[in-house]
Amino acid sequence: MDTVIIKINDERVEVPNDFTILQAAKKMGIDIPTLCYDERLESHAACRMCVVEVEGARNLQTSCSLKVADGMEIKTHSERVIQARKDILDLLWANHPNDCLTCEKSGECKLQEYCYKYDVKETTFEGKRKNYEIDDSSPFFYNNQNKCINCGKCVRVCSELQHTNAIGFSERGFNTHVSTPFEIGIDNSVCVSCGNCVSVCPVGALMPKSKEKFRLWETKKVRTTCSYCGVGCQMDLLVKDNKVVGVQPANGPSNNGLLCVKGKFGFNFINHPDRLNKPLIKKDGQFVESSWEEAYGLIVEKVNNIKSEKGSEVFAGFTSARCTNEENYLFQKLFRAGIGTNSVDHCARL
């Protein structure tokens, strides 16, 4: 890989020549604010928060899209840059409901974070604000366009990564908003409810329909692997008072920060009162809670009895797509080598 030498905030640095300024700055530990950037998506350069000053360029440049070039001199936090960012925040705020007090995104909202960092207390403008009806047709999430900052991440995730193309921008100019074709509502669209749009939304426009009231700072994040299938998607469970109240995708080698509807929204079973946490053994026509040792012991005993009476061939094993490859391998091994039958199958073949 060829490298180039550039200067960021008067410090020299050598970076690969296909880096953007944003990547180079990140490598140096310099934090450039972004609202529409996502490293998995094509650069969009829409939010204008990542602008920097590049020596010799007339206008400010978006660091998320501009590639480095040898000898480039960049200022990421000059007075002009900071003023431009403040102006952008001022404008975004001029078309955003001022309701952080009750907004569920509070604490994790990027608009809130940057307004805090750049000391934008309130907007300096008056004028029309968006007033759209909330689309709550999806069973899993809301689309509240009054909070949308038009970063386009949801639209691009849905098209570039999820490849569903359920949502897009409709209308122009001030009225531009995220919607389904012909405003038919999420539930009537081709949306597969994967929730990846919800996960990338930097503000409170796309929000899960939560059963719990919680603040993000009250939760603990627990990194885990999704238990629904063998893909092994990484996720963070949001845990409040030992209860799972939400799921956020994490960036694992097999899921690239994405989840499907089950991983993203299907967590209510975890704390459900009907959920089995202990094995049950039927005694005298009644299910009775038992220990794992007792349950396993019973299984081994019954298998051995049947095997000695009727042979191995009467057994068949059926495993689940919710298990990993490794678990499925072990399962067939158990049936073939342990029990002695080749009758073993898997639900994903059906």
Partner: peptide
């Protein structure tokens, strides 16, 4: 009227 709505300075 004709702004495409992509970036905040122009849209808002």
């Amino acid at each position: 009227e004709e702004s495409c709505g992509k970036c905040p300075p122009c849209r808002i």
